[in-house]
Design a protein around this nucleic acid. Structure first.
Lengths: 154, 154
DNA sequence: TCTCATGTAATTCTAAATGTTACATGAGAC
DNA sequence: GTCTCATGTAACATTTAGAATTACATGAGA
């Protein structure tokens, strides 16, 4: 099954924005993400609607963070992306007449619910600030300055 | 995201087989599952390879269970279906040069791994016998005899 | 040898993410 | 004002993997 990358992509974009003082254009971000500007705009539109980022048109325009990194969790971003489904497996009919199917669904549903709850609560525990701290630790380990161009070569 | 139904479908089929003393044809099972005989055969081929079911050709042929219900867990079936991916979300590059992407992946990977482990260990705890018991409880509650035809009407 | 059922390859259908094109809108720069 | 830059968005194309279908070979009774 194909996997939805939007959460990963959104976090990546947000942290890049956090490293820059000026607005970043969707074109620039798209190059960073090796994707298309429209894909970036589409994704960020959801975050803007929830107030996590701002966008401005015209010269010098682009995207900027609208919130403190401490104030935003992965859960917030996940929700802003319209809560894409987390699990790749499921079952056939939601309200089957067949009692066997009901028994199967009962077990699977409970298990799936628990797994989703676990994922969401984990997401709620991690802030963008924590991710940023981790990034800067890695950066210090490399003893290099931040260079978004070089970071995405090859 | 579209969800993979094979685990649910396989469990459903296996429990139907458990209720019948004679072999069930893929055509009959397909009608039960409102799907196509080839889909059923393809799915059951994986289970047969692992020894959970048997198939026989010709008159009176079809599919039968090859193991005790107590001896098979949902995990066994999941593995026999070739371990379809459990999570619908993921990330972009597995070994990104970008340190931001690395930081993002580190958090997401750990979370995803934990969720998958939880699902698999849950699957390992539930036997087909437990599902069957649940089914028979529901059946007793309905005070009806088992009737696979009626169970899948409408 | 006829029929039934599986075995399996090849093809098509489908849904959802992803990617692309095209063009309208609005904000500076000049 | 108008040119350029950048977002906003609709419409369309591509991709991917599961699901469904078609077609035919194989083998086991009746």
């Amino acid at each position: 099954m194909r996997r939805d990358n939007r959460l990963s992509a959104a976090l990546h974009v947000l942290l890049h924005m956090a490293e820059e003082a000026h607005p970043l254009t969707s074109g620039k971000l798209a190059k960073t993400m090796m994707t298309n500007p429209v894909v970036v705009r589409r994704m960020l539109a959801g975050l803007r609607a929830k107030g996590y980022v701002r966008s401005e048109k015209g010269h010098g325009g682009g995207w900027t963070l609208a919130r403190d990194l401490e104030a935003v969790t992965l859960r917030d971003i996940y929700d802003a992306l319209d809560s894409p489904s987390l699990l790749a497996i499921g079952h056939r009919a939601e309200n089957p007449q067949c009692l066997i199917e009901q028994a199967v669904n009962a077990v699977l549903n409970q298990t799936f619910r628990d797994a989703e709850d676990m994922l969401l609560s984990r997401f709620g525990e991690v802030t963008l600030a924590a991710l940023s701290t981790d990034f800067h630790k890695r950066l210090a380990g490399r003893q290099g300055a931040y260079n978004p161009e070089a970071a995405h070569e090859g």
